[in-house]
Amino acid sequence: MIKFIKRFYLVIMFVFLYAPIAALMVLSFNSSKYMSRWDGFSLKWYEAMFSSELIMSALKTTLIIALLSAVISTIIGTAACIGISRMKRKPRAIVMGLNNIPMVNAEIVTGISLMLCFIAFGISLGFGTILISHITFCIPYVILSVMPKIKQTEQSTYEAALDLGASPVQAFFKVVFPDIRPGVLSGFLMAFTMSLDDFIITHFTKGAGVNTLSTLIYSEVRKGIKPSLYALSTIMFLAVLILLVIANLPKGKNRELVKEN
């Protein structure tokens, strides 16, 4: 009985989390443009999506910013983790405290503060300012996932590599990096996802003329959102789901095989 209640609760919670996603997927095939009415199956929103320059350019901006901010924040963040782990207690506490600010602070305050700063220094708001802002809030997530891995690595293995004639760069990529790779990867994915899904900070730092998908959607809320945006997010969601399943399945099987042998 208790087992049944547990299962039931689990199912309810995941229905709660995924219901809106299912709803959007269904609505993307709705030939009516109203959310509340079903007028039959149609693919017209998918056609409309590909022919809409507005949506395609917002998609391009969103993906480029997510990719760039994930790559840059992963590099800066991983390097920072190595540096921070070598620091003494006090400076480390200060750096980690500052690192927590973008995560703990309200996004609206982070967005406003960056906007005021850019304008005060005469940097015009646009693609560049969105990118800088995204990198700023992504690095803490990279550090959060890389730091525990760095702490687990042994300083001595790195030194052993040096003694055996490796250059510091070789020692890093051949000895240290394989140990911390899972953390770096999950930091990268986290950064990419956070950047992709961000609205509030982008809203304040984007300026006129540039749109990410989030800001495009927000600007359409009042007029009524076009279902072509549901179509786009359905495709993106399914693409990620398939990619991640493919990336995870064979590896898991290999591991099991190795264990069995």
Binding site: L17, Y18, P20, I21, L24, T193, M194, L196, D197, F199, L213, S214, I217, Y218, V221, I225, L229, Y230, S233, T234, M236, F237, V240, L241, L244
Partner: peptide
Amino acid sequence: LPMWMNFLLR
């Protein structure tokens, strides 16, 4: 995973 569908839309 749900974050891959835009949060405004969700």
